[in-house]
Computed example of a mutant assay.
Amino acid sequence: MSVEILTLVGSLRAASHNHQLAEAAAKLAPADITLTVADGLGDLPFYNEDIDTAAALPATAARLRTAAERAHAFLYISPEYNGTMPAVIKNAIDWLSRPWQAGAMTGKPVAVIGTALGQYGGVWAHDDTRKAAGIAGGAVIDDVKLDIPGSATRFAETHPYSDAEVAEQLTKVLTTLAAKATTA
């Protein structure tokens, strides 16, 4: 069985180091893992219950939910903005948390990783993302962490895929997430 992992990246900038981390994850994924990066998160309107109806559901929200329903697990890759997660990640979690206790993420394994400019690699953002995803119904794997500090210098001339330490840790994240998905 191939494990489907939906990846949500918190940076909207195409060349961001977190997008590069998602690219690395896709390249490093073992043969039994299919990793899909959710697109269009920047076009997703802020969650509003008034438009979360069959008649008014935005197409971007419907596509995200469909991708999430197909997924066996979730990988959030997040930078840190002003000490917390980017709004685009929180908004995606809000859309995936509905309907309450029956959202597309409910009961499925969730891992949170990322890289940031600062010396702690986005730890606060990752902790906040784990908290929000767990409250939204995801089965957060708290002991799976990859917080990469100093992204601007560490990846100035090296793609995360080519960084041996990152590649090894990222592979462990993916295999652990896949294992949790097959036992969930």
Rank of each mutant, 00 (worst) to 15 (best):
residue 72 H to C: 02
residue 16 S to R: 11
residue 74 F to W: 06
residue 96 L to W: 02
residue 166 V to P: 05
residue 6 L to T: 08
residue 32 D to F: 03
residue 5 I to V: 09
residue 88 V to S: 07
residue 122 G to Q: 03
residue 113 I to V: 09
residue 180 K to I: 08
residue 123 V to P: 09
residue 175 T to S: 09
residue 120 Y to R: 15
residue 182 T to L: 07
residue 44 L to S: 05
residue 46 F to L: 15
residue 83 G to S: 04
residue 159 H to F: 11
residue 94 D to Y: 02
residue 14 A to W: 07
residue 52 D to I: 04
residue 146 L to Y: 04
residue 177 L to M: 01
residue 82 N to R: 08
residue 100 W to A: 15
residue 7 T to I: 06
residue 160 P to S: 07
residue 174 L to E: 00
residue 53 T to W: 09
residue 167 A to M: 10
residue 168 E to C: 10
residue 167 A to S: 08
residue 62 A to M: 10
residue 55 A to V: 03
residue 64 L to M: 03
residue 143 D to G: 14
residue 132 A to V: 14
residue 86 P to T: 01
residue 27 K to L: 15
residue 76 Y to F: 13
residue 29 A to C: 04
residue 137 G to T: 04
residue 74 F to P: 01
residue 55 A to P: 01
residue 139 A to D: 06
residue 4 E to T: 12
residue 120 Y to D: 13
residue 123 V to G: 13
residue 69 E to W: 11
residue 135 I to L: 14
residue 8 L to S: 05
residue 49 E to Q: 15
residue 85 M to G: 10
residue 18 N to I: 01
residue 7 T to V: 09
residue 109 P to G: 07
residue 42 G to K: 07
residue 23 E to T: 14
residue 80 E to F: 11
residue 31 A to M: 04
residue 40 G to T: 02
residue 64 L to C: 06
residue 96 L to E: 00
residue 11 S to D: 01
residue 176 T to M: 10
residue 152 A to H: 13
residue 180 K to V: 07
residue 165 E to K: 15
residue 80 E to D: 08
residue 35 L to Y: 00
residue 167 A to D: 04
residue 14 A to T: 12
residue 52 D to M: 05
residue 156 A to T: 14
residue 59 A to F: 02
residue 97 S to W: 03
residue 90 K to L: 13
residue 109 P to H: 10
residue 21 L to E: 01
residue 28 L to T: 02
residue 73 A to P: 01
residue 90 K to T: 10
residue 130 R to C: 06
residue 162 S to P: 11
residue 51 I to R: 07
residue 159 H to T: 11
residue 83 G to M: 05
residue 92 A to W: 00
residue 65 R to N: 04
residue 42 G to A: 05
residue 131 K to F: 13
residue 58 P to D: 02
residue 168 E to Y: 08
residue 102 A to Q: 14
residue 167 A to K: 10
residue 13 R to P: 06
residue 14 A to Q: 12
residue 58 P to C: 06
residue 137 G to E: 00
residue 63 R to E: 09
residue 147 D to I: 08
residue 34 T to M: 14
residue 27 K to Q: 15
residue 62 A to C: 06
residue 170 L to M: 09
residue 69 E to I: 07
residue 82 N to Y: 01
residue 102 A to F: 11
residue 158 T to K: 13
residue 47 Y to F: 12
residue 37 V to Q: 09
residue 162 S to A: 15
residue 124 W to C: 15
residue 172 K to W: 08
residue 153 T to L: 10
residue 143 D to Q: 14
residue 27 K to H: 15
residue 182 T to A: 06
residue 88 V to F: 03
residue 91 N to V: 09
residue 42 G to I: 05
residue 102 A to N: 14
residue 54 A to E: 09
residue 148 I to H: 06
residue 29 A to Y: 01
residue 80 E to A: 12
residue 70 R to N: 04
residue 176 T to F: 08
residue 144 V to I: 10
residue 184 A to W: 09
residue 140 V to M: 12
residue 114 G to S: 07
